[in-house]
Design a protein around this nucleic acid. Sequence first.
DNA 1: GCCGTTCTAGAATATTCGAAG
DNA 2: GCTTCGAATATTCTAGAACGG
Lengths: 158, 158, 158
Amino acid sequence: MKEPSTSVGSPPVPAFLMKLWALLEDPSNSDVITWSWNGQNFCILDEQRFSKEILPKYFKHNNLSSFIRQLNMYGFRKVMSLESGLLKSDHGSCIEFQHPFFKKGKAELLENIKRKMSTVKSEDPHLTQEDLQKVVTELKDMKEVQSDMDTKLENMRR
Amino acid sequence: MKEPSTSVGSPPVPAFLMKLWALLEDPSNSDVITWSWNGQNFCILDEQRFSKEILPKYFKHNNLSSFIRQLNMYGFRKVMSLESGLLKSDHGSCIEFQHPFFKKGKAELLENIKRKMSTVKSEDPHLTQEDLQKVVTELKDMKEVQSDMDTKLENMRR
Amino acid sequence: MKEPSTSVGSPPVPAFLMKLWALLEDPSNSDVITWSWNGQNFCILDEQRFSKEILPKYFKHNNLSSFIRQLNMYGFRKVMSLESGLLKSDHGSCIEFQHPFFKKGKAELLENIKRKMSTVKSEDPHLTQEDLQKVVTELKDMKEVQSDMDTKLENMRR
DNA sequence: GCCGTTCTAGAATATTCGAAG
DNA sequence: GCTTCGAATATTCTAGAACGG
């Protein structure tokens, strides 16, 4: 079995991805979370047991939302099955995720998965309130000028 | 049978269209909703059973009007055929809809169907900046006019 | 007990708030979700039962995340209590939320809770299209004044 | 600095209601 | 009467932001 490595020479695979991989490789978890039938996606079969039993064994929390935040951070996308739209029974709480470089048996692809950068926003030159305030100030100045001019005109007419 | 896909590389087909397609492909629904004879349109044969039995299995509601709102949102138009207009006496009301890219057996056309944009003012980001630029330009023009007028006034006073 | 009303003359209270209120007023839910000891906040005592048993009875879903999204949309904020901050043992995850106009016994305050508008990214909440429209209107008025003034000037020159 | 956890918000589609044409 | 559409809220999925390790 090929295992993901953090050896020298290759960029290290973040802990989250290593844990996610280990989690799916452990057969004792397979009734709660497992690879999809074709190994292309993975599926959380029992949301409740996953968050309360599995998560704390691998992470510092037991919140599914935190786990999903990490998945999105690494570029995973939710797979929308037709069943997911139904409200009916509760046996269909299958949460499925996918990533182009996260495939069963392809541990060597893991290093291609990159965490999204923490956007240190470079101050978009978009429209700020300052810009609008400048315009408003100019308008006010122009109004004064117009008022002065109108006064002058009336004076001249007389 | 060709199935609609939401694979990577192609823009995903919205859930509504996928469900509508699945709905029509399921033979167990064919006595309630089905493709028209030539596969160009689809027809709701039994309005009551459709809304109360079929809809809640695919959507989070059981209202025909909500279903039709979605159809219109995606550009479907009601077909006013002679049959449906005249022979509605007792063989049920046949509600027929049509879309140029929604044809039986042509799942690959689905991705051409576009949802109409919500007319909310979400275009504020760039629209505002463009409009602000227009205002700024107008302000500049008005300043020139005011300067000219003020010059005229001073000339007249002398 | 005072109940929230959607009577004529007062702006209607959105369905979400009415349901949240009803949910908390129903004693049969009190072991899953209830007002805090002083009635200032409310607390979800059993996350699992709340999402799978309570939510689908009031909403069209059973996802806690969707419920929380609505809470934030209406301005509710999570309360970080000491208990919930600790990586506690197992005495249950208490999720507590608060809103200045959502207090036990004060149904008349509900109409003050406003949903956030579905708009834009700018962190300037005051920069709206309305503001720009005001400026544009002012500009138009000023143009008329200027035109009048210019006419007067030409008349005087002759 | 990068990563992990949490809370909140953005963005797109979905559902409802009622008015426009 | 009837089809289509506007607008508000609702639901879902993803991202922003703050903070700590």
